[in-house]
Design a protein around this nucleic acid. Sequence first.
DNA 1: CAAGCAAAAAGTGTCGACATTATTAGAAAT
DNA 2: ATTTCTAATAATGTCGACACTTTTTGCTTG
Lengths: 240, 240
Amino acid sequence: MSQSSLPLTDQVFEQLEAAIIKGDLPQGSKISEPELAKAYGISRGTLREALSRLEERHLLLRSPNLGARVTTLSLEELVNIYQIREVLGGLSCSLAAQHMTDTEIQTLRALLDEQEKSLEAGQGLFCNQPNREFDFHYQILQGNRNPKVLTVLEGGLYQQIRMYRYQFSASSQRPYQALKEHRRIVDAIEERDAELADLLMRRHIRTARESIEAQHQNAMAQNKQRDSQSILSREATEKV
Amino acid sequence: MSQSSLPLTDQVFEQLEAAIIKGDLPQGSKISEPELAKAYGISRGTLREALSRLEERHLLLRSPNLGARVTTLSLEELVNIYQIREVLGGLSCSLAAQHMTDTEIQTLRALLDEQEKSLEAGQGLFCNQPNREFDFHYQILQGNRNPKVLTVLEGGLYQQIRMYRYQFSASSQRPYQALKEHRRIVDAIEERDAELADLLMRRHIRTARESIEAQHQNAMAQNKQRDSQSILSREATEKV
DNA sequence: CAAGCAAAAAGTGTCGACATTATTAGAAAT
DNA sequence: ATTTCTAATAATGTCGACACTTTTTGCTTG
C-alpha cells in the first residue's frame, strides 16, 4: 500500500490527524495509549511519538501523568483562528500579486472555471466544494514565494478549521458569492495590485468568519439549553 | 531543581530548544541520538519524543532512516518569517487597541519607561534589550484577547528569530528610534485607534526587517567568498 | 446508607534490547 | 594509487517490560 519505508510513527501520525479532523476521535475524548496502540497494531513507544507531534500541532492536549485528550474547539477559538487566517491570507495574496508567474495565474483561473462548472452542475451543496476552496487557497499559497505562510497554516490552524467543517458539515452558505470573490481576487493578482488583492482576500475570509458566527448564533438560539464549551454537541454525554 | 514531576521528555525538549537557539547545537549539524541521549542521561526513546516535537516546531529536520539535523536559517527564510510576524504583530496591536484594559496599558507604559531607563544608563548595546523588546510584544500579545496569535508565534517563528539574534549577536541598531516607535504604538492603543496601532506595529516590524536585510548586505559585501546558504558561518567547516 | 480508607487495576513515564537500514573501513582488483 | 566490492560498525525504527502515578474497586466504619 503506502510506502513501507515511511516510518510507522509517521503513518500513524497522519491517520490520527485525519481521525481527529473527521471526529472519529471525538473532541474532548480521552486517549488511551494501550487501547490506541492495539487498535493500530503498533507499540506504545511508537504511538507516543505520534502523540507528541499531535500535541505540538494543538490537536491534542496532554497533561503529565494524566494522559492526552482531543482538543475541543470553541466558537471563540475558531474566531481567533479565522482572525489569524485573515491576515495570513491577505499577506499571501499580496505576495502572490507580486511574485506569481503568469502561468500560475492561469492555473488559478482554471481552478475557478472548474469550480463554476461543478457549481452549475447543481452539486452546489455537497460535492467537493470545500476541497476546491482549499485548492484555491493552496494555489495562491504556492505562488506567493513565502513557503512559511503555508507552513504556519498547516501547523494546526488549517487542521482545526477542517475539524470544524467536517464535524459541523459546514460548507459555504453562499457558493456563488464566494466564487465571485475568488474571481475578483485573481483579477487583482493578475493586475499585480498587491494592495487590492490583500484587501479582497481579507474581506473574503472575514465574510466567511462572520457567516460562521451568524450560523452559530442561530444554532445556539435553537438549542439554548447547553453551554458553548464546544461547538460540537456529541461529546456531551462523555465523562469529563 | 526543576519540578521533578515534569516529565523528562519535556525538560529535555526545553533544553534542546534552548541549545538550538543559542547555537550549542549548530545549524545544519547532525543529531546523533545515542550521543545526545547519553549527554542528557536519558534513554533514546525519551529523547526521540523530544526530537519529534522539535521537528514539529521546525527546529529540526528529520529524514527517515537518516536522522535529524538542526534547521538552517537563510536570510530568505528570516525575511519570510518577518513578513508573517509583521501581519501578526499588526493584528495583535489592532486587537489590543480594542480589548486591552487600562491597567494593562499602564503596565505596557511602565515597561517602556524601564526600557528607557536602562537605555539611558548607557547599556544600550548589550544588556537585556532584546528581552525587553520581547517583553513589550508579549505584553501586547497577552492583552489582545486572541491567545492563538501567541501560540502561532511560539510554534517556531519566535524561536527562529531568537536563533538569529543570539547567534548573530544582533540587537537593534537603533534602540532610541525603536523606543519612540514603541511609545507611538502604545499611544495608538490607548486612544483605541486599532487601525493606527496596526499600521504602526507593522511599520515597526518592517523597519526591523529592512535593518536586518541591510545589515546582511553589508556582511555579504565584506566576505563575499561564501554562499548564502546559511546566515551563520560557523558550521561551514562541518561535513555535510 | 454514606463517607472514607485500602487494595487492586489501569495508565503513563522511562528504559534497555533487537531488527533493519545507513555508513564506514578495509581488502581486492584494475 | 584509485576504484569497487564486501564486511564490520554505527545509527535509526520498533518493541516489550518495569516503576511509579492515577483511578477504580470494594471494604470498613461511623
